[in-house]
């Protein structure tokens, strides 16, 4: 039985609550692991399904990740961002699985780096009152025209709300490359949106 006290929901309060949860998990509290699972299952799934288009593979990878966390809990340290840590881990598990399945000559870096091949639909964007229907449609079109790496950077930034440094870690590229990816992605999105007729 447990409950965690996450006072003050500003950044530091949220961080403290997560650290508390993580420490409890490391200390062997199963309920803490369950709370982490409930909290991160959906975001992990939504990221993973963009990397491999197979629901069962993603579900198995999440199982493997949490089983490994539990097994190695005593030797884990507390990451700076728990979310980023879990996302890095799920990416690694999925990519390793993919690599194993490929024939040797197909195992090149490029293939792995460009895994994020999701085609977004209008429903993937939140309906906001101030953003009208037509604009949402153009935005999705624009995002889908980006390169896979630009798409992945945008997704990590805008879906998962991560910082440049966290994204760099997850995608295993350097800080400046993240900024460049993001800059080019945003520029392309704006450019494409403006070139599609029926403007605001």
């Amino acid at each position: 039985m447990f409950l965690y006290n996450g006072n003050n929901m500003d950044n530091t309060g949220e961080r403290r609550e997560e650290v508390c949860l993580w420490e409890a998990m490391r200390g062997g509290e199963r309920e803490a692991l369950e709370t982490l699972f409930r909290r991160y299952y959906s975001p992990l799934y939504d990221y993973g399904i963009n990397l491999v288009a197979n629901a069962n593979n993603v579900k198995d990878a999440i199982q493997e990740l949490f089983l490994k966390l539990w097994r190695d809990r005593a030797s884990l340290s507390t990451p700076r961002s728990i979310k980023a840590y879990l996302l890095v881990s799920i990416r690694r598990i999925l990519m390793d699985g993919k690599k194993r399945k490929r024939k040797r000559y197909q195992r090149n870096r490029k293939y792995i780096e460009d895994a994020f091949s999701r085609v977004f639909t209008k429903e993937d964007l939140i309906v906001r009152r101030e953003i009208e229907e037509g604009k949402r449609e153009r935005l999705v079109q624009a995002i889908n025209q980006l390169s896979n790496r630009q798409k992945e950077t945008l997704f990590l930034r805008y879906y998962h709300g991560l910082t440049n440094r966290e994204i760099a870690k997850i995608m295993n590229i350097n800080y400046q490359s993240v900024k460049n990816n993001l800059y080019r992605a945003l520029k392309n999105v704006r450019g494409i949106m403006e070139s599609i007729p029926n403007s605001v």
């Binding site: 999440i62 101030e130 953003i131 945008l154 999105v189």
Partner: peptide
């Protein structure tokens, strides 16, 4: 703000847990 991806709560969470 227009770049807001919707988040879905997956229905199988408890089953997977």
């Amino acid at each position: 703000r227009s770049m807001a991806f919707s988040r879905n709560r997956r229905s199988e969470v408890e089953l997977e847990l």
